[in-house]
């Protein structure tokens, strides 16, 4: 009987200082029964990868509003892989232009959820992807 809660790291890489969206997601995943490690603002990709390793999370959610996603996301994913955590699901929130999404997904991003996305849908998507 495996009733272990899903563990998710919610992080804000880069320099933008608005974390309301990240907190909304953290709260929604908590309400979906997950253990959410929230690391706060201005995290470097190294900090995020190391926290993901120590906390042994199933998924990492990145909230990026600064437009730097094309630089930050590949870096986080490379650092996760370097630590043997290629199985960890990475999903994105924030302001991500539609035209950037296919390339991000091609790099292995499991989902991109912009403003207005239904939080229950996000939680269910995370749950399904982790269970796989």
């Amino acid at each position: 009987m495996d009733t272990s809660p899903i563990r998710v790291l919610i992080a804000k890489p880069g320099l933008d200082g608005h974390d309301r969206g990240a907190k909304v997601i953290a709260r929604a995943l908590r309400d979906a029964g997950m253990e959410v490690i929230y690391t706060g603002l201005r995290q470097t990709p190294e900090m995020i990868a190391e926290a993901a390793l120590q906390e042994d999370v199933d998924a990492v959610g990145l909230s990026i509003l600064s437009g730097a996603h094309n630089a930050l996301v590949p870096r986080v994913m490379a650092l996760l892989n370097a630590r043997g955590m290629e199985h960890v699901l990475v999903f994105l929130g924030g302001i991500i232009p539609d035209e950037d999404i296919p390339a991000l997904k091609a790099q292995g991003v499991a989902g991109v959820f912009g403003p207005g996305a239904n939080t229950q849908v996000i939680a269910e998507a995370v749950r399904q992807a982790v269970k796989k």
């Binding site: 809660p5 995943l29 309400d31 979906a32 926290a51």
Partner: peptide, 17 residues
């Protein structure tokens, strides 16, 4: 729900890395 928000790392930024 059994869920949790674990927020202690926010105050421990200096130690990461």
């Amino acid at each position: 729900t059994g869920g949790a928000i674990l927020g202690d790392r926010i105050r421990m930024r200096d130690l990461s890395g």
